[in-house]
Write a protein that binds this DNA or RNA. Structure first.
Lengths: 239, 239
DNA sequence: CGAGGGTTTGAAGTGCATCAAATAGTGTGG
DNA sequence: CCACACTATTTGATGCACTTCAAACCCTCG
């Protein structure tokens, strides 16, 4: 394949085309409808996945069905690849939440490459470190930010942080999903968004949100955060 | 040095003695009192640390002093080493919480070794993946377990999981610290521990806790968890 | 013995969850 | 293009878990 789509994944950029050829030889592309399950937590892992379009939710759940959302990803992201360090078991379940085109590749091919290509191992290490930082921030947010502040923080991370003047922010997916991503109930999300609106003067119209000035959100959301500028570098998947 | 102490760190075990010699050449050992700060969040990072004895708290805090505890570590653990993937800034602050002996090493030496020793990069990747899993579990616990269940889970992870019969569990550090580690207030910890006692029949005597049967704790704490057996493999630092 | 932290207990407040129901929005078949 | 079905979202009412503030108790250590 002349245009290895996986080069869109930042940390795979260091790989050469021979490797992508190998991966592509065993690649499978499929279309998925909303609600389809790609794999379940602790399933035997043989493939990893690249999202061409659509949205995928990564989550875990208890026996009685309470879910904990690990992440929600869109085009350009891969997932399931860390299974090679997890005894070849998926560390979470994956469900399509918006109609998606997804390509899967052999985990074995990836594993072999990592074992012999130190550059790849290193850039994967950096990616893991970044993820680690994001998780730390997530834990911090959940414990010291309230619901409204978490929403404000979420919005801030959806936009370019040097943007100025009035901005339109579009929620990337259902409010219910956003709520689960932020670890709150839909009802709480609804009320907390209204509170955020009243406190900061943002305008909410369905899934579109208008902000006159990002500083409004900053000062409200980020007073309860350890990062200087609100969680710089820590972005959610953008639309 | 004939007995490289760093070999106690699982993922450094793959390194050869030449590397440990290099590290040791630039090593510095110091004693620290309770309360001493080793470095602050976003300080320039040049050293990483190995704990010979004592306890160290890793944390971040907001401008108004609210802390978020990242981890609490004891002998045999290293910290600060991931700064090499974080633009050479420490991703958290470190404070000694029990009198400690700590050896510091050059981050640069480590960085160079990782860049040329693929085995090390790989074992570090596994370690990072494990940490990632633990963080995911942490987020899940904080959102779906209540305070008593989190304490029960904490206790379970302090003991060998195949232990049988009556067991004595010793809290590894102050209750206040345990509380912060679990993301709750000291008062909440106190009350939640009492509740756990009433519900499971454990006996609490200061910082010693007696359990007749681990199943008591399991069924109480782990009903709200996505792992089969309670968070297998995910351990806190043990005393 | 006294000072100071660690820990518990009490009383009150707050934030979020839950349950219930109304409303808005979307896609379907007629 | 409309009516219906179904889902998403909002709103209201209530309850519970945890926090906060205050005070007592306890333990250790100089």
């Amino acid at each position: 394949m002349s245009n290895p789509i996986l080069k869109n994944v930042p940390y795979l950029r260091v790989c050469d085309d021979t490797f992508f050829d190998t991966l592509n030889a065993g690649a499978q592309q499929k279309s998925y409808k909303k609600g389809q399950i790609l794999f379940l937590h602790e399933d035997e892992a043989t493939r990893f996945y690249f999202i061409v379009s659509g949205w995928v939710k990564l989550f875990r759940e208890t026996q009685d069905g309470v879910q904990s959302v690990v992440n929600i990803l869109n085009a350009g992201n891969i997932f399931g690849e860390t299974s090679i360090f997890e005894n070849d078991l998926y560390p979470y379940s994956a469900e399509v939440v918006e109609p998606a085109e997804i390509i899967s590749y052999s985990l074995n091919d990836l594993k072999k490459e990592i074992e012999k290509n130190n550059k790849l191992a290193l850039s994967m290490l950096s990616a893991m470190a970044k993820y680690r930082r994001e998780q730390d921030a997530e834990i911090e947010h959940r414990s010291i930010q309230n619901a409204s502040q978490r929403i404000g923080c979420f919005l801030l991370r959806l936009v370019e942080q040097d943007a100025e003047g009035p901005i339109k922010i579009e929620l990337p997916y259902d409010k219910i999903l956003v709520a689960s991503r932020l670890g709150m109930q839909p009802e709480t999300f609804s009320r907390a968004l209204a509170k955020l609106r009243d406190k900061t003067g943002i305008r909410v119209q369905g899934s579109t949100i208008e902000v006159d000035n990002l500083d409004q959100l900053n000062s409200f959301s980020c007073e309860a955060c350890s990062s200087e500028f609100p969680c710089k570098d820590l972005n959610y998947a953008k639309k």
